[in-house]
Design a binder for these strands. Structure first.
Lengths: 410, 410
DNA sequence: TCGCGTCGTGTTTACGTAAACATCGTCCGG
DNA sequence: CCGGACGATGTTTACGTAAACACGACGCGA
């Protein structure tokens, strides 16, 4: 796997290779995997085997006598204390800025610390205090704009509160992997967990979720069991559809996200409900998978649909695919067909034409996640059921216009 | 329009109504505390408030007295051992799947674990083993495609090796913040660090980097001091420019990334060098900042430039801005002007027209980061100077064509 | 039958830190 | 001039885990 892509790319890169396709652009083609895994995946029942390795009783613990001068280079308080000629407790006091240490002594200790390059051992500290000041984040992928922006917001706000973020990625969303992630989480240096994951999988996990763990879930309807924070998907979809109806379109087509996605389902449901409550016909939704490619495919189909004057894509990437398909087929946007996306990724303002889309406030989602999870930690409570919805807003740009033939064309 | 989400972050950073105040968290006595802070007496110490706050008097022992049912119900091996009627060492053996425990006993222990909901305490484990199986990642932002994809790859590969990833975001790249991040890192539960950061800042940090820490740096030319892994920026830029020259364009314009970016500098330098070595005139580069907006601005300027038939944008977002500007100004791409981007973000295949661009293998970058850092950990060596470049490839789509008036139009 | 290896468990100890408690001066008011 | 308060520092202990060693029981070959 590793080697593959070098020459593979090399070729693709050959100039004049004609009309390259995005075959490779789209997916890195799962090629990669771990170079070499150390041990066998624990067959046993319980614990997933320590990475450091199992049984071979050889010398893992270098201990003291490692040849070559390099040994336990870890400096402890005791070392500092000895050098400074004080007790380790005094070193502790200095290290933590506690009062009650005379300046001269403090200075000596600081000097010793500097000389030895002392750094406090956070494992010991965590052991002592019973907490890590770290929040775990379990997710499938950072590839989507939404996820990465949410994670960033989480990391930022958590940092502001003195917490770090530990990422547990799940490459393939099989149940086993998810369970594994939770298990690992349990052993991990983490005080609480934020899960950015599809509810479908979450269902099966409930049992495994260690009872004492604080959890907040994003993008899911598990509100009856966990604290959930999410963008108000339905609200956003409603805005999009209403906007198009208000422009005089008779109805609105929809390109969905993958059916495994809770967010996609919500948007589709709200799209349908909005049309129905307005008494409009509900066209068959076109299936997509979040990718521009799937949007493109849907666009090719819709370009041939005579009555289609308005499309709501479940995200901006698919809207982009639509735009390109319509452009290729000579359907003018927004002259003949209006398009609305979802997410408001930064690029959408520069599509051709600039995309009207539903803005998601990922930063706010991240902030609320952190707030909730910290509240749980501080209260000592477990996850409190409930759903916290972050409102959306519609950003009107130039991919939407009054329906063709509408007298009201300004 | 685009302004909408621009300042989210600003807002996001604003603390809410003062709920938690962690300013006191630091050192009450000012910032004398830390050794790793050689010169700077920075006051805002990193140490967050200790959890052990005077909650309910001195009952932190949690052992027996349960005032309100709410306590640290942390279950230890000893608890399990007592319930199972064995010693804690036996519990340990079961927990780690070590051999030498008779089945009946093991079963009893497992039952006890289940009943009590036992989870191993990773702090204690880390203390015992002297390592966390965690890699820290310091970065500015996940917003850019490159960063988030690299981080994802890092997380994935690290996970495959049994390591988790801890994210330390730096919202504003001031020196203080960076120093703070490093300091915090030092205290964090981390075995090594990967830095995704601009070299300019890194320079000033050298002193602060705790000596024993393993480091790998991405996107920088610090190869003389640290292990560096990066995309071969120069190689990519060269491919882009050569491609355009091969198509018969007399020269190539360039829209740069921000001057603070090492990658942007590399690309600009290689662009210039390639033109010069081909004996072509070198137009004044147009400044950009990675955003589609800046590309758009550059595009408006270039649309009026008569001799301009080919543009190399330092990333795909800016190329997108170019495309839109040219489209608005009625300049046909690729008929009149060819455009090449950099990154090969998934959407670029669906731009109008599909973008010819330089593909970056972020996954490979992430993988090599992990490989390097693990090698360091295992060898016990510190960062070994050296630069590991990941090759790029050119993905030719439809935004480039032979120069207008070129007889050689095949 | 004995001695010795082996197997299943228990006991001791160390990891680095910091709260709680102990100790030893010193200074001050009575 | 003495007793006690207080300030600076040392000593003990516990946090949870697991390696290292200890120990008893059992089996097997001599």
């Amino acid at each position: 796997m590793g080697a593959v892509n070098r020459d593979d790319r090399e070729q693709a890169g050959t100039p004049n290779s004609g009309d390259t396709r995005r075959e490779q652009a789209g997916t890195p083609s799962g090629g990669d995997t771990h170079p070499e895994r150390p041990g066998t995946p624990s067959s046993g029942d319980t614990r997933p085997e320590r990475p450091g390795t199992p049984i071979s009783g050889s010398a893992r613990r270098g201990g003291s006598d490692i040849p070559g001068g390099r040994r336990k280079q870890r400096v402890s308080m005791a070392d500092v204390a000895k050098l400074a000629g004080v007790s380790s407790q005094t070193v502790s006091r200095v290290s933590n800025g506690h009062p009650g240490v005379i300046d001269a002594t403090r200075e000596q200790v600081l000097a010793a610390m500097r000389e030895l390059g002392y750094r406090p051992n956070s494992a010991a500290r965590a052991l002592r205090y019973g907490q890590f000041n770290t929040i775990g984040v379990i997710l499938f992928s950072l590839a989507s704009t939404g996820n990465s922006r949410t994670v960033e917001a989480i990391a930022t706000h958590a940092a502001a509160e003195g917490y770090a973020i530990t990422l547990i990625p799940i490459d393939v969303p099989t149940q086993d992997n998810v369970l594994g992630a939770f298990t690992r989480m349990g052993e991990l240096a983490v005080d609480a967990v934020i899960v950015i994951i599809e509810i479908h999988l979450l269902d099966t996990i409930t049992v495994t979720l260690p009872p004492g763990v604080h959890v907040v879930v994003v993008d899911s309807d598990a509100g009856d069991r966990y604290s959930v924070v999410d963008t108000d998907q339905a609200d956003g979809a409603r805005r999009a559809v209403r906007h198009l109806l208000d422009l005089g379109h008779r109805t609105v087509w929809h390109v969905t996200g993958p059916h495994t996605s809770y967010a996609a389902q919500s948007r589709a449901r709200a799209w349908r409900a909005t049309l129905e409550s307005a008494g409009r016909p509900v066209p068959e939704p076109l299936p997509g998978d979040w990718s521009a490619e799937s949007g493109y495919a849907a666009g090719l189909a819709l370009a041939g649909e005579p009555g289609c004057t308005a499309v709501f894509a479940a995200n901006d990437q698919m809207a982009l695919g639509l735009l390109r398909a319509f452009h290729e087929r000579g359907r003018d946007v927004p002259g003949e067909i209006s398009v609305v996306g979802f997410d408001d990724i930064p690029e959408s303002a520069y599509f051709v034409p600039p995309l009207t889309t539903v803005h998601q406030d990922f930063a706010e989602v991240g902030r609320r996640c952190v707030r909730q999870v910290l509240a749980q930690i501080r209260d000592g409570q477990s996850s409190r059921p409930g759903t916290d919805l972050v409102p959306t807003s519609l950003v009107v740009r130039r991919s939407t216009a009054p329906a063709p033939g509408t007298g009201s064309a300004s």
